[in-house]
C-alpha cells in the first residue's frame, strides 16, 4: 500500500478505493505490519470505555486539585443547566459539561485518556460522547469516529510533535479540536472531503495558541480551554457540513502550524516564563504555592 503521511495522500486513497477515512487508516496501519485491525479497534474500545468512565466520575466530583486552583467548575455548570438551558441547545450544553468533567478528573489525578495529550484530554471525549448519546450512535460508529480522529492526529504528528513544549497549545488543544471535529463530522455522515475540511478549519483557526500554564501546572488556563475548544470543533463541523472549504489545504495548514510553533518564543511554550504564567496574579499564586511545591 502507498504511503499515507499527508492529508492529500489520505484523501486520494479514500477517493480511489471509495472508502471512509477510518477504513483507509486501518488498511494502512495493517499494511505497515505493526498492529492488526483487531488490536487497533480493541485499543479504541478501551479508550472509549475509559473516556465514558472519566466523564461519569468527573460529573459527580467536586474534589479540588492538589494546588486548590480548580476542580469545582463542572459542578457549577451543571447547577446552572439544572435551572436554564444553554443558548446553544442541549448538545452543546452536554459537550461543555463533559469537557470540564474530564479535564477536572485529569487534574485530580483521575484516570483519563491522553487524546492526544493529557492537558487536552476533555475535548475529543466531550464531542464524541455527548453527540453519540443525543443521537443514539452505535458503539461501532463511535469507534470508527475515534479512529478517524486518531488518523487526523497522526497525520499532524508526522510533521510536528504534539507537545506544548514544541508547538504551544495549538499542538495540544488545537489538534484535539481538529480531531474532535473530524469525529463529529464522521458521525454526522459527512463525506471524506467534509471531514478533512472540518479538521483543517479547526486547526487553521487556532494557529498561534500559546502554552503558558500558571505555576507550570496543567490547570490555568488548560481546564477551561477544553470546553472552549470542544465547541470550537462543533463550529468547524458545522461549516464543513455546509461544504465550506478551507482555501488553504490541510497539509499547508499543518506546515503553517509547524512554522508558527518554531517562531513562537520558548517563553510561551510550556516553560511558564511568559504570558499568563508571568502575570501579577500568577506570580502571587506561585509564591503561595511554595508550601506544597518544594524546590
Amino acid at each position: 500500500m502507498d504511503n499515507i503521511n499527508t492529508f492529500r495522500q489520505l484523501y486520494l486513497a479514500c477517493k480511489e478505493n471509495n472508502k471512509r477515512i477510518y477504513e483507509v487508516a486501518l488498511d494502512y496501519e495493517v499494511s505497515q505490519g505493526e498492529y492488526s485491525e483487531y488490536q487497533i479497534r480493541l485499543q479504541a474500545k478501551k479508550s472509549l470505555d475509559a473516556m465514558v468512565e472519566a466523564i461519569k466520575t468527573g460529573l459527580k466530583s467536586t474534589e479540588l486539585s492538589p494546588s486548590g486552583f480548580s476542580g469545582n467548575d463542572c459542578d457549577k455548570l451543571q447547577k446552572r443547566y439544572e435551572k436554564s438551558t444553554s443558548v446553544l441547545g442541549c448538545v452543546a450544553q452536554k459537550i461543555m459539561t463533559y469537557a470540564l468533567a474530564t479535564s477536572e478528573q485529569n487534574l485530580r489525578m483521575g484516570k483519563i485518556v491522553a487524546c492526544p495529550t493529557a492537558g487536552s484530554c476533555g475535548i475529543v471525549p466531550a464531542v464524541l460522547i455527548a453527540y453519540a448519546e443525543e443521537f443514539n450512535i452505535s458503539e461501532t460508529d463511535m469507534i470508527n469516529a475515534l479512529i478517524t480522529a486518531g488518523e487526523i492526529g497522526k497525520l499532524v504528528s508526522e510533521k510536528m510533535a504534539l507537545a506544548g513544549a514544541v508547538g504551544g497549545c495549538q499542538a495540544e488543544c488545537g489538534v484535539a479540536s481538529a480531531m474532535a471535529s473530524a469525529a463529529l463530522t464522521q458521525m454526522r455522515g459527512g463525506n471524506v472531503k467534509q471531514i478533512i475540511n472540518a479538521s483543517t478549519l479547526a486547526l487553521k483557526n487556532i494557529l498561534g495558541l500559546t502554552c503558558d500554564p500558571v505555576c507550570g501546572l496543567v490547570e490555568i488556563p488548560c481546564v477551561k480551554r477544553n470546553p472552549f475548544l470542544a465547541i470550537h470543533a462543533v463550529t468547524a463541523s458545522e461549516l464543513a457540513m455546509a461544504d465550506i472549504i478551507s482555501k488553504i489545504p490541510a497539509d499547508e495548514v499543518v506546515d503553517a502550524m509547524e512554522q508558527t510553533g518554531k517562531l513562537m518564543s520558548p517563553l510561551l511554550k510550556e516553560s511558564s516564563q511568559g504570558g499568563l504564567a508571568k502575570t501579577k496574579t500568577a506570580i502571587s499564586l506561585e509564591k503561595n504555592i511554595g508550601s506544597f511545591v518544594k524546590y
Binding site: 487508516a25 496501519e29 505497515q32 505493526e34 498492529y35 488490536q39 487497533i40 485499543q43 479504541a44 478501551k46 479508550s47 475509559a50 486539585s65 478528573q105 485529569n106 487534574l107 485530580r108 489525578m109 483521575g110 484516570k111 483519563i112 485518556v113 491522553a114 487524546c115 492526544p116 495529550t117 493529557a118 492537558g119 484530554c121 475529543v124 475515534l146 479512529i147 480522529a149 486518531g150 488518523e151 492526529g153 497522526k154 504528528s157 508526522e158 504534539l162 480531531m179 501546572l217 496543567v218 490547570e219
Partner: peptide
Amino acid sequence: SSIIDIISPIMAGPSS
C-alpha cells in the same frame, strides 16, 4: 507513530 499512540494511553492525570 500509530493511531494507537494518538488515542492512548489511558493514564492517571494530570500530565503525560
